[in-house]
Amino acid sequence: MITESTWTCIGDCKDFPLNLGTCVKVNDLQIAVFNLPTDGKWYAVQNYNPINQRMVLSRGIVGDENGIPYVACPLHKHHYSLETGICLTDPNYSLQTFPIKEVEGKLMLSV
């Protein structure tokens, strides 16, 4: 199934519910994956919130702000853009984002 060497399969798309975040672990990295009904549809960012230094972002609620899809930290509601990883409430911070795609029903992540 794996078509390019850098891509890792993280499971079946159907195991990642719509409008929610799900956490996966790739090489000891915790990555938060989001399934949104927007054009890109899939997003992947680090699970670690650099502001409060906790592994929590996959558990945040998602939404959009002026059309930018974001995740809100479940602890203190920092908003991070899912597209760029930039913190919308404090641009001094940003998250690493990861390429993610769907291939024949499987979800592939490049770390």
């Binding site: 519910p17 719509l18 929610l20 906790r54 592994m55 929590v56 945040g60 609620i61 479940p74 602890l75």
Partner: peptide
């Protein structure tokens, strides 16, 4: 309606400062 639930309701428990 899991996607609608915020922080605490989403896991039917209160989140603490360490997650």
């Amino acid at each position: 309606n899991a996607p609608l639930q915020d922080t605490n309701d989403a896991f039917l428990a209160n989140i603490q400062q360490d997650g």
